[in-house]
Design a protein around this nucleic acid. Structure first.
Ligand code: FES
Ligand code: FES
Lengths: 131, 131
DNA sequence: ATAAATGATACTATATTAGTATTATTAAGG
DNA sequence: CCTTAATAATACTAATATAGTATCATTTAT
């Protein structure tokens, strides 16, 4: 069981590569593909999603590409995880349709919540710039 | 994205229920199903797996059922997670076939590893008995 | 106009998760 | 020894999530 999904991982790697360039530099998908050996079309979609979520700025047309929308130190790993994997829920009642016999008092869920809070806090400290 | 899968959750709930009884008490699947409202056949398979992994002892035949194989305080949540979800990997290189450009030096992976270690340590402290 | 880039969206393939069904085996008790 | 009440083993199916591909539209510098 992996904690980090493929698209999160690819996104982080692409961002790390982009962060090496000058601030605001425009980089094309092809360039990233060449350097990081990622599947092109898949990566395109990933970068598009990052642009939609204000991590990247996209420039269409000739000489276009993507640039970081903010300083690499302000892009947190949790932002990326949230975009691609949604909120990481450490403690959700899994009894969907049926009635959960002990929703509010469940001590298991309570403990997991504490651990989840810690993980989110620590992951929030990691930024693209810090890598 | 959920950290805990359905079968882990069901297993924990079943074990918590069983831990309420006397030490070594034999309990049938039907009894757990009645009390915890879990899908019977699915739960059967889950308990079988727990038995195979020495969490439960199974008694076949009439008056049979399952009992805890050890004190509830010695059954850790991590044991259950490992059985049903495998080792939780916080930091694995996701570039399978292709060559990873930076396997040994990847700082992202290194940081995730630390967090994973913490989570496993904390989860290891939680036992069925403590819930 | 053309070429070189992204945008949007739909499609497909594979893996994982969740659950069901079937048949065999075991052991207690009359 | 037969019946009954339990688990064991295994195969099957359905739903969902993940990973990746394909197609066509739009934009912009020259
Ligand atoms: S079971 Fe629904 S909350 Fe613990
Ligand atoms: S990318 Fe393979 S290890 Fe960081």
């Amino acid at each position: 069981m992996n904690f980090i999904s493929r698209d999160t991982d690819y996104a982080v790697r692409a961002l790390m590569f982009m962060a090496k360039g000058e601030k605001g530099e425009i980089i094309t998908v092809d360039e990233i593909v060449r350097r990081e050996k990622l599947p092109e079309r898949f990566l395109r979609r990933i970068l598009q999603k990052l642009a939609k979520n204000d991590i990247l700025v996209s420039y269409k047309g000739k000489d276009g590409g993507f640039s970081l929308s903010k300083d690499a130190d302000r892009i947190r790993i949790t932002d990326i995880i949230n975009i691609f994997q949604g909120h990481v829920d450490f403690a959700k009642c899994l009894l969907k349709g049926r009635k959960c016999p002990n929703t509010n008092s469940c001590s298991f869920r309570k403990k997991l919540k504490d651990i989840g809070a810690y993980v989110n806090k620590e992951l929030g400290k990691i930024t693209i710039g810090s890598l």
